[in-house]
């Protein structure tokens, strides 16, 4: 009690010094926070810009695709294959046993509506664009797509069946906005 009332000069200067240290440290700390806040826009400006993000998703009207026909769409700079499959192609895809697949995946998982298959047209081996979209193009031994670069064969569900590719053709995120319009991305 008595002690707190009678401070020595030494105590006062120590207290003074620690108050000074606090404000100095607090000032520099605040400066560091400000510097960090400044750094964030410098880093974030490299993230995709608004115009790039605007093209991050596209809408496709699939009603114009005849049965048996395939179209190629550009999405995020890459080709998307949309195939309006015939009933025999759908049948083929669904009866394949999972044990025969290098990358087991059921067709019902890959196609939200069996008539339309939507896959990324990029071979999972080294990135070439497989053939099979245009009329007359080679479709490979399994009736899907054939990659001419190193001989990967994909079936009518876009799954790898033969050749060096390790994975099935990637299914991009997509949803049906209506019966005839899908939104990719």
């Amino acid at each position: 009690m008595a002690k707190s009332q009678s401070k020595t000069a030494a105590d006062a200067s120590v207290e003074h010094k620690s108050r000074r240290d606090f404000i100095v440290v607090a000032t520099y700390a605040m400066g560091a926070v400000g510097a960090g806040a400044f750094v964030w826009p410098l880093v974030d400006q490299m993230n995709p810009a608004a115009d790039t993000l605007a093209l991050a998703s596209i809408e496709v009207d699939v009603s114009k695709i005849a049965e048996g026909q395939s179209i190629t769409i550009k999405w995020r700079g890459k080709p998307i294959f949309i195939r309006h499959r015939t009933s025999s192609e759908i049948e083929e895809a669904s009866v394949v046993s999972q044990d025969d697949l290098r990358d087991p995946e059921g067709d019902e998982v890959r196609a939200q509506k069996p008539e339309y298959l939507v896959v990324l047209g990029v071979c999972t081996h080294l990135g070439c664009v497989p053939l099979g979209q245009k009329v007359g193009e080679v479709r490979g031994e399994y009736g899907g797509w054939f990659c001419p670069c190193h001989g990967s064969h994909y079936d009518s569900s876009g799954r790898i069946r033969k050749g060096p590719a390790p994975l099935n053709l990637e299914v991009p995120p997509y949803s049906f906005l209506s019966d005839q319009v899908i939104r990719i991305g």
């Binding site: 826009p41 410098l42 974030d44 400006q45 993230n47 810009a49 608004a50 115009d51 790039t52």
Partner: peptide, 12 residues
């Protein structure tokens, strides 16, 4: 484009 679309582009 920097002013409108790039993140924080207007600021930079």
């Amino acid at each position: 484009r920097i002013m409108r679309d790039v993140n924080h582009g207007w600021l930079l």
